[in-house]
C-alpha cells in the first residue's frame, strides 16, 4: 500500500482565492524515493510543508481532493504529534534549531527527549544520527556558531534522531559541497524503512530517485521516471554542463534512438560515447 497518496489534490492558502498547489496526483510506496523538482517559486516548499503536516496549524490553508499519509488524512493532526512519523529538513538549516540547547548534542537529543524515550535509547539515536551525518566532531559546539554546511549536517541529524518513516529534504544539502551532499544522500537511500522525498531544483540530485514529480507554478505537470521527463523538465532545472549538452543534442536531433537520457555528468559521458560509437 502507498505510504503517501494524492489524488487530484489542491491546496488554497487562507485568504487566497486561487490554489497555490493544484492537480497533485501521485502515490508513493513505503521505502521508495520521490524527487519533487521545479524552479524557484514553483511550490516545492509549500508541498513540503503540506507533507510535513503543517496544514492547517503552521500553514493556514484548505485542501481539496485526496491527500493521505499512511491511509489517514494528511492535514488536521497536531504537527508535534506527527513529528515522530514525518520529518522535514528545510533549506535554511538555522530554522531547525530550537534554541533550547547549548550544544549540538543537546540539540539532536532534544527531539528524542520530547518523545519521552529512555536515556540509552536517546543516546543511541544521537550517536547514530551524528555518525551518519559526519557530525560527531560538532557535538560539543554551540548550535548558534555553526557555519551553513555544518548546520545543515546538524539539522539532518536532528531529523534522523526522531527515526521518521518519511523524511522530507527540501534542498537540505544546498550548503554542502556536491560530493558531501551525494555521499549523505547515498547513505540515506540505503536506510531501511525510510521513505524519502527530495525537493530539488538540481536535476542530477533528483535523478537518482525512483519517481520524479515536476511542479511548475504550483501545478503538477508530470510524474514519472527521471529519464522519461528529461527532455521536458531540464530547461527549468539546474544541471551540469555535460547533462545540459545531452539535452541540447537530443533537442537538435543529434542523439541516437535507444540511447537513454543521462541522469548525471558521469552518465552523460557514457551516453555520449554510446551515441558516438554505436
Amino acid at each position: 500500500m502507498a505510504l503517501i497518496r494524492f489524488a487530484q489534490a489542491s491546496l488554497t492558502r487562507a485568504g487566497a482565492t486561487a490554489p497555490c498547489l493544484s492537480c497533485i496526483d501521485f502515490a508513493l510506496p513505503a521505502g521508495q524515493t520521490l524527487a519533487v523538482v521545479g524552479g524557484s517559486g514553483s511550490g516545492k516548499s509549500t508541498l513540503a510543508g503540506w507533507l510535513a503536516g503543517w496544514v492547517p496549524h503552521a500553514l493556514p490553508a484548505t485542501e481539496a481532493g485526496v491527500a493521505e499519509f499512511d491511509g489517514a488524512p494528511l492535514s488536521g493532526a497536531l504537527p508535534a504529534v506527527r513529528a515522530g512519523q514525518v520529518q522535514l529538513v528545510q533549506g535554511n538549516p538555522y530554522a531547525a534549531l530550537t534554541g533550547c540547547a547549548f550544544t549540538v548534542y543537546d540539540e539532536v537529543a532534544f527531539g528524542p527527549e520530547n518523545l519521552g524515550l529512555c536515556e540509552e535509547e536517546i543516546r543511541a539515536r544521537c550517536r547514530e544520527a551524528l555518525a551518519l551525518c559526519d557530525a560527531e566532531a560538532l557535538a560539543v559546539r554551540a548550535p548558534s556558531t555553526l557555519s551553513g554546511g555544518e548546520a545543515q549536517r546538524v539539522a539532518l541529524a536532528c531529523a534522523l534522531a526522531m527515526r521518521p518513516r518519511l523524511l522530507l529534504l527540501d534542498e537540505a544539502f544546498n550548503r554542502l559541497t556536491p560530493a558531501a551532499a551525494d555521499r549523505l544522500l547515498e547513505r540515506l537511500r540505503v536506510l531501511p524503512m525510510l521513505t524519502l522525498v527530495l525537493f530539488e531544483k538540481s536535476f542530477e540530485r533528483a535523478a537518482g530517485a525512483d519517481l520524479m514529480l515536476w511542479l511548475d507554478g504550483g501545478v503538477q505537470r508530470a510524474c514519472a521516471e527521471a529519464g522519461v521527463l528529461f527532455d521536458r523538465v531540464l530547461p527549468a532545472l539546474t544541471a551540469s554542463d555535460a547533462v545540459r549538452a545531452a539535452w541540447r543534442s537530443r533537442a537538435a536531433d543529434l542523439w541516437r534512438d535507444g540511447v537513454a537520457a543521462p541522469c548525471s555528468a558521469a552518465d552523460a559521458l557514457t551516453r555520449f560515447a554510446e551515441v558516438a560509437d554505436g
Binding site: T177, P178, A179, D182, R183, S240, D241, A242, V243, A245, S264, A265, A266, D267, A268, L269, F272, A273, A276
Partner: peptide
C-alpha cells in the same frame, strides 16, 4: 567528488568522446 564525471564536466565530456 567520487564520480568519474569530474567537474568541470563539459571539458571532461569532450575528452571522453
Amino acid at each position: 567528488g567520487d564520480s568519474p564525471g569530474a567537474a568541470p564536466t563539459l571539458p571532461a565530456l569532450c575528452r571522453a568522446i
